[in-house]
Structure formats: structure tokens, C-alpha cells
């Protein structure tokens, strides 16, 4: 279990979030909320790119006490931008995920881990292609493969479905659901698409614009019209179909939209 207690962070004088308390289990955890709520900052704080005040622990171990290398062993952070480095091949890029153990002459265990990750994501046919030749969705899969070679326990992702068409979005989430069950990985994924989040989240975390956790839980249980109005300032209908929940936004309250 990932346990966050009294976590606060500010950029200079601007407070991004304050006194956050969260307990998160393995599975697909999706973090939603309006722009500037502090979602990305929270994820970067958990990974250790930023140094917030408060406590973060994983299975009883204090994460802030770990040095960078031990942290890297434990978790992976996949930024929002597509992975760059156009002239590298997919195989080389995924191999980079093993950076901490890579030697000048590449060892068998590292090669094996790469092929294993490529096969898990079914992209072994792309192995010799250069990154520059891939589509956005394929690049995202390469990023995930690069994180899988480290056998992490936690994967943090910032808006992974950006720029992906609907089919690629679904594919990506099916893959992540599958590996989170098979490999017992805890995912924390920052998202904007509410309906996609409702469809795939085992656990939904909603942040509000004040940088607080508004609610957390099984999506069907926590999403309703009030909370959408409260957090996003919108009027929306919430439908329940076949035990799934769907949000249909009607209008923004901040501005009146005709029609």
C-alpha cells in the first residue's frame, strides 16, 4: 500500500497542494481534477522529482529515505511528452530502462528483460525500428516497455492517452489493466478524460482546484452530479448503464453557453 500523509508542496509562494492524505492499493488508480489542481505535481512528488513536505511510504518503507537508485528500482515515472531520441531503435530505447545495471558489453539478463517487455506489450515486431518512425501510440507503448524492464512495483504516468485516437486509448488501457493484474503493479495515472477514467479505474481519486483530495473510491460510488459541479464547475448528467457510469456534460457554470 502507498501511504501519503500530510503532504504539502509549494512553488515559491504558490501553494500547489496542502495536507494531502491518501492510501492507494495495487491496480489502476486514476487521478482526475481540473487544470492546475496539482495532479502532475503530486505524481512528480511521489516519484521524487520534487521534494514536498510530509510523508510518503510504500509497504511501510519511507520513500523519502531511499536514495535515488533504490527509488528507481521501485518505481517508474512516464512523463506526458512522447519519448524523444528519434534515431534510437525501439530495442535500444527499451534497453535504456536497465540503465542502472547496463555495462559497456550488454549482458544476457538485460537483453532477456528487453525481449520480455516487448513481448508483454506485443511490440517485438517493432524492435529494430527507429523511434522517429513510430506513431504516438507506439511510442507510448515503448515508454511502458522501457519501464517494465525495471520490474517496478509502482508506475506513475502523466496523461498517457494524449494525442492517441480512441482505439489506441483503449488498447493502452487494456494493456495496463492486464499488466497491473499479472505483475501486481500499482499504477497512478493522471487523466483528463472522465469517461475513460470511469471505464478503467479500479480506484478514482478526484482533486479539486484548491489542491485537496475531494474524494477517492470506486468510480461508480463517488461520481455524481454534485461532485462534478463542485470540482469542475460544470452541469453534467451521470448515467448508469450495465454497472458502468457515464458522464454527459451539459454546460459550464462559469460561462453561459447558448444552445
Amino acid at each position: 500500500m502507498l501511504k501519503i500523509e500530510n503532504l504539502s508542496f509549494s512553488y515559491g509562494k504558490t501553494q500547489v497542494f496542502k495536507d494531502i492524505d491518501l492510501q492507494i492499493d495495487e491496480g489502476i488508480n486514476i487521478l482526475i481534477g481540473p487544470n492546475a489542481a496539482g495532479k502532475s505535481t503530486l505524481v512528480k512528488s511521489i516519484f521524487g522529482l520534487l521534494s514536498p513536505k510530509g510523508h510518503i511510504s510504500w509497504k511501510g518503507k519511507n520513500l523519502q529515505d531511499l536514495n535515488l537508485e533504490d527509488r528507481m528500482e521501485l518505481m517508474v515515472y512516464i512523463p506526458q511528452e512522447d519519448i524523444a531520441g528519434n534515431s534510437l531503435t525501439v530495442f535500444e530505447t527499451v534497453l535504456l530502462g536497465r540503465l542502472s545495471s547496463l555495462t559497456f558489453k550488454v549482458q544476457d539478463k538485460d537483453l532477456d528483460a528487453v525481449m520480455n517487455a516487448l513481448k508483454t506489450l506485443r511490440i517485438e515486431n517493432l524492435a529494430k525500428r527507429r523511434l522517429g518512425e513510430l506513431s504516438g501510440g507506439q511510442k507510448k507503448l515503448v515508454s511502458i516497455a522501457q519501464s517494465l524492464v525495471r520490474s517496478p512495483e509502482i508506475i506513475l504516468m502523466d496523461e498517457p492517452t494524449n494525442n492517441l485516437d480512441i482505439q489506441r486509448q483503449l488498447e493502452l488501457f487494456y494493456v495496463m489493466s492486464k499488466i497491473s493484474t499479472e505483475k501486481k503493479i500499482l499504477f497512478i495515472i493522471v487523466m483528463h478524460d472522465i469517461n475513460l477514467s470511469l471505464k478503467f479505474a479500479d480506484n478514482l481519486i478526484i482533486m479539486n482546484s484548491k489542491g485537496q483530495i475531494e474524494k477517492q473510491g470506486i468510480p461508480e460510488n463517488i461520481i455524481d452530479e454534485e461532485i462534478l459541479e463542485e470540482v469542475y464547475n460544470i452541469k453534467a448528467k451521470v448515467y448508469r448503464i450495465d454497472e458502468k457510469t457515464m458522464v454527459w456534460p451539459e454546460k459550464s457554470i462559469g460561462y453561459s453557453i447558448k444552445g
Partner: peptide, 23 residues
């Protein structure tokens, strides 16, 4: 340079990716 070649390869991606790889 050659001793650091994998780190330098990671630098060809982006600062954020490099950081997430521990550099």
C-alpha cells in the same frame, strides 16, 4: 565518454526521461 555511453544515450531522449532513468 565511452564509460558513460549509456547515460549519454539516455541524454538523447529528454531531461525528464533522463531524470526518470536516474540521471
Amino acid at each position: 565518454f565511452l564509460k558513460n555511453s549509456w547515460k549519454l544515450t539516455a541524454m538523447t531522449t529528454s531531461d525528464e526521461t533522463a531524470m526518470s532513468l536516474g540521471i
